[in-house]
Measured scan of single mutants.
Amino acid sequence: NMVHPNVICDGCNGPVVGTRYKCSVCPDYDLCSVCEGKGLHRGHTKLAFPSP
């Protein structure tokens, strides 16, 4: 899995490795796959980016 450079997960404050989930509503909100799997930020649609 690749690390998305200059992207920090807003759920756990860790690096985003593998798929990046970017909120389509909020201007700067990203989740890693673990936090997305936990259902964080469920109210907004997210775009999935498998690689940087």
Rank of each mutant, 00 (worst) to 15 (best):
1 N>M: 08
1 N>W: 00
1 N>I: 09
2 M>F: 05
2 M>Y: 00
3 V>P: 07
4 H>D: 14
5 P>K: 07
5 P>H: 04
5 P>I: 15
6 N>D: 11
6 N>E: 15
6 N>T: 04
6 N>P: 05
6 N>G: 13
7 V>N: 09
7 V>T: 06
7 V>Y: 12
7 V>E: 09
8 I>P: 05
9 C>V: 01
10 D>S: 15
10 D>C: 15
11 G>H: 12
11 G>L: 08
11 G>R: 05
13 N>E: 09
13 N>V: 05
13 N>Y: 08
14 G>I: 07
14 G>L: 10
15 P>T: 13
15 P>W: 10
15 P>M: 09
16 V>D: 03
16 V>I: 14
16 V>W: 00
16 V>A: 04
16 V>P: 01
17 V>K: 14
17 V>S: 14
17 V>Y: 12
17 V>D: 14
17 V>Q: 14
18 G>C: 03
18 G>Q: 05
18 G>K: 07
19 T>W: 04
19 T>P: 08
19 T>Q: 07
20 R>L: 10
21 Y>H: 06
21 Y>C: 02
22 K>Y: 05
22 K>E: 05
23 C>H: 01
23 C>L: 02
24 S>F: 04
24 S>N: 10
24 S>P: 03
24 S>I: 05
25 V>C: 05
25 V>E: 06
26 C>F: 01
26 C>A: 02
27 P>R: 13
27 P>F: 08
28 D>W: 03
28 D>K: 15
28 D>Q: 10
29 Y>M: 15
29 Y>Q: 02
30 D>V: 09
31 L>Q: 06
31 L>A: 03
32 C>N: 00
32 C>H: 00
32 C>Q: 00
32 C>L: 00
33 S>I: 09
33 S>G: 09
34 V>T: 11
34 V>E: 13
35 C>V: 01
35 C>T: 01
36 E>S: 05
36 E>D: 10
36 E>P: 00
36 E>Y: 09
37 G>A: 13
37 G>Q: 09
37 G>D: 13
37 G>W: 06
37 G>I: 05
38 K>W: 03
38 K>P: 01
38 K>V: 05
38 K>G: 05
39 G>F: 02
39 G>W: 03
39 G>M: 08
40 L>N: 13
40 L>E: 11
40 L>C: 09
40 L>D: 07
40 L>H: 08
40 L>Q: 08
40 L>M: 13
41 H>G: 04
41 H>W: 02
41 H>D: 07
41 H>Q: 02
41 H>C: 09
41 H>K: 03
42 R>V: 14
43 G>E: 15
43 G>Y: 11
46 K>W: 08
46 K>F: 12
46 K>Y: 07
46 K>S: 09
47 L>M: 13
47 L>S: 14
47 L>Q: 15
48 A>W: 05
48 A>H: 12
48 A>Y: 10
49 F>G: 10
49 F>E: 14
49 F>Y: 10
49 F>V: 15
50 P>V: 07
50 P>C: 08
51 S>G: 12
51 S>H: 15
51 S>P: 15
51 S>N: 15
52 P>C: 04
52 P>S: 09
52 P>F: 03
